[in-house]
Design a protein around this nucleic acid. Structure first.
Length: 713
RNA sequence: GGGCAGUUAGUUCAGUGGCAGAACGUCCGGUUUACAUCCGGAAGGCCGCAGGUUCAAUCCCUGCACUGCCCACCA
């Protein structure tokens, strides 16, 4: 028996234990088959496959990753101990726009741009960057103790993965679900790419609402003399006066009494001196502004839709750099939108056409990746038809072949699928999967490849052994922030390409907020670095604390004290184990059990023994049930409380007395060992490093690593 | 504008139609031979506000307030 130090030192233990696990091969199904037992149905017939959310290659481990993967690891470790052949494939996502931005920032330091370098050289730089720092986060996963199969590590830009992506694209193309079309899309002038609706972040901004007079075109021959003396106007309200240069109509609500008689007439667009029609459209809100809206089809999503309904001309006056085009007219051509606005206001003032200016707080869209204000632009993009795919996903969710937890997210997902627009899958960036069409320069939206993750990592489109054996997967957990971007799309992709939903259970975990309820973010300085917590308290303490705070559907207001409680608990477990080992040390001399103990209860048991054995036996199914139902806090606190308040405080204290009597010594020692060993098993999914380390010191016959020991029954 | 969630001890959160709970923190006392990262004890609550149902409401219903999140084309 090896002596245990007086206090538990996680930093000394963790890396060493992780290495042992890795070398054991037990993180992969092949490794498990080496200890398989058909008799007990261990690692033979039953399988449990978990699906990881691959982090971005730009990523650093944050507390959200730590929570998400800790919870998944708790489940998979329990399943492994229960005899399931488990598989959890790790990987990283190339994260198109995000990565491109990071590398562009690096270039900027050298005074370069991607355009200077050219496409080929730029991509070389991205790959270099990926090799250097892209996999950093995976090393950090090891610090957390995740039991993922490193032999199957995948990257969304791997050669095989690229094959999967083009296979998927061509499949859709053949079905005629992919088309090219002109739309007004969200354009980021800095990223020089279209971005999706879901990647636009709206921020409340103070702005101005300009009321502009558009003079009516007089029907001169019928005009009465009195009307001649006064000019008549339609007044429109806008926050972006510069876009008026591209107006091709003024729209009013057909039920608006104020304008009924003007529908079909014309106004003169100031500055441009163009005649444009007054049209009727139901979408116009009578109560906002003046009830009359200028229509700029090329630079507003809503206006574009009106233009399609009413056959209006689409006039592009802003280019991809956010500069005014020649169609904007001589006055403004070449100006930035900001300067152009200035110019337009000056001119309108000169003409006496600004009626008033009001203050207004409104939402302005920003690029989620770089913060630049989005410019809605008319442009040619690739789209994927969503109707049938959304229907597939909806059916899977409605019928329960994919279950969503907590259930409140189920309706939410269905509503989103019901209202889904066609998916703009093209991006005008360089880093990503090239659209597999001759002469096409665009790349695919990152989420197009992410959507294939659960089966692409197993080898699809090849009919590999992995795909047959381990697909569909059982489980995935992720943040609610990407339930549309990613989960919904994985569900329909899985169904479309394999005929099966990619996973059975989706667990949407809590979001980690600060103690004050703020969002954690690097830029606000409110983030908490899990690696610092691991350094300070140990990985087991962090895992304990995260599980302990995962109480239900509420978000977590992160409380570091609970991590500290985890550290103290780790030390408590360590010392209780030390006590047991000391007793064994003394007993084994008497018994000469040098090859270790059988893990079984003695035939003679006193009332106290029976009480505690029964209590522990009741705890096992409860813990199991709680983990299966994602009640992590309840699971871990019940085990905590039994270990500390019952086993350590009562049973051990009582045993100290009884052990004085040498007749009871052996009996007590065996019960102590039995109780401890089974509690270590229950604790292992939550605190794997510590429990593995203690397990390695226990004198038990024919033991394996705790990682693959049998879950208690 | 619409939807969802939350509001319970100093803090973070459980919980139940029948006397209000845990952890941490605070205070008091302990060198008990595994652990001072420990042990023993104590204080601390109009269960957001206002109505309703009920013998009985922190819990069920209605309304309101505040906080957070998501969705939406308010020009």
């Amino acid at each position: 028996m090896t002596e245990l130090s007086k206090a538990y030192n996680p930093n000394e233990v963790e890396d060493r234990i992780y290495k042992l696990w890795e070398e054991s091969g037990f993180f992969s199904p092949e490794g498990l088959s080496s200890v398989a037992s058909a008799k007990e149905d261990r690692f033979t017939s039953r399988k449990f496959v978990s699906c990881i959310a691959p982090p971005n290659i730009t990523g650093e481990l944050h507390i959200g990753h730590a929570l998400e993967n800790t919870l998944a690891d708790i489940i998979i470790r329990m399943k492994r101990m229960q005899g399931y052949q488990t598989l959890w494939v790790p990987g990283i996502d190339h994260a198109g726009i995000a990565t491109q931005n990071v590398v562009e920032k690096e270039l900027k330091k050298e005074g370069l741009t991607r355009q200077n370098l050219g496409r080929e050289k730029f991509l070389e730089r991205v790959w270099q960057w990926k090799e250097k720092s892209g996999g950093k986060i995976l090393e950090q996963f090891k610090k957390l103790g995740l039991s993922v199969d490193w032999s199957r590590l995948r990257f969304t830009m791997d050669e095989n993965y690229q094959k999967a992506v083009s296979e998927a694209f061509n499949h859709y193309k053949k079905k005629d679900w992919i088309y090219q079309g002109y739309r007004v899309i969200n354009w980021c002038p800095r990223c020089q790419s279209a971005i999706s609706d879901l990647e636009v972040e709206y921020k409340e901004t103070e702005g101005k609402l300009y009321f502009i007079r558009y003079p009516l075109v007089r029907e001169s021959s019928f005009a009465k003399a009195s009307e001649d003396r006064q000019t008549e106007y339609v007044v429109v309200a806008t926050t972006r006066p510069e876009t008026m240069l591209g107006d091709t109509a003024v729209a009013v609500n057909p039920n608006d009494e104020r304008y009924k008689n003007l529908i079909g007439k014309k106004v003169i667009l100031p500055i441009q001196d163009r005649e444009i029609p007054i049209i009727a459209d139901e979408s116009i809100d009578i109560s906002f502004g003046t009830g009359a809206v200028k229509v700029t089809p090329a630079h507003s999503v809503e206006d574009f839709e009106i233009s399609q309904r009413r056959n209006l001309e689409v006039l592009e006056i802003i280019d991809k750099n956010g500069k005014m085009t020649e169609k904007a007219g001589l006055l403004c051509q070449g100006l930035s939108t900001k300067d152009c606005r200035q110019k337009v206001i000056e001119k309108l003032n000169e003409l006496g056409l600004i009626e008033k200016i009001e203050e207004l707080v409104h939402n302005i869209g920003h690029c989620e990746r770089c913060g630049t204000i989005i410019e809605p632009l008319y442009s040619k993009q690739w789209f994927l038809k969503m109707r049938e795919l959304a229907e597939l996903a909806k059916k899977a969710i409605t019928t329960g072949s994919v279950r969503i937890h907590p259930e409140k997210w189920k309706e939410d997902m269905i509503t989103w699928l019901d209202n889904m627009h066609d998916w703009n899958i093209s991006r005008q960036i360089w880093w990503g999967h090239k659209i597999p069409i001759e002469g096409e320069e665009d790349v695919l939206d990152t989420w197009f490849s992410s959507a294939l993750w659960p089966f692409a990592v197993l080898g699809w489109p090849e009919k590999t052994k992995d795909l047959t054996e381990y697909y569909p997967t059982d489980f995935i957990t992720s943040d609610r922030g990407i339930r549309y971007l990613w989960q919904a799309r994985m569900i329909f992709s899985g169904l479309e390409f394999t005929g099966k939903p990619p996973f059975k259970d989706v667990y949407i975990h809590a979001t980690v907020l600060t103690k004050e309820g703020q969002r954690m973010s690097k830029s606000l300085g409110t983030g908490i670095d899990p690696l610092v917590l691991i350094e300070k308290y140990g990985a087991d303490a962090l895992r304990f604390g995260l599980a302990f705070q995962t109480t239900g559907i509420q978000d977590i207001r992160f409380n570091e004290d609970v991590i500290d409680a985890g550290r103290k608990f780790a030390n408590k477990i360590w010392n209780a184990s030390r006590f047991v080992l000391i007793q064994i040390g003394e007993s084994s001399k008497a018994l000469a059990k040098e090859d270790g103990y059988e893990l079984k209860l003695p035939s003679k048991l006193d009332t106290m023994d029976k009480e505690f054995i029964e209590e522990l036996k009741r705890l096992i199914p409860l813990a199991q049930e709680n983990i299966n139902k994602f009640r992590f806090s309840q699971a871990v606190s019940e085990i905590y409380s039994f270990f500390w308040n019952r086993f350590a405080s009562i049973y051990i204290e009582d045993a100290k007395q009884k052990i004085q009597n040498s007749n009871d010594k052996i009996q007590k020692t065996e019960v102590l060992l039995w109780l401890l060993a089974n509690q270590l098993k229950l604790l292992h999914p939550f605190m794997p490093f510590l429990t593995e380390e203690i397990w390695s010191k226990l004198p038990i016959k024919n033991k394996k690593m705790l990682l693959v020991e049998q879950w208690p029954k």
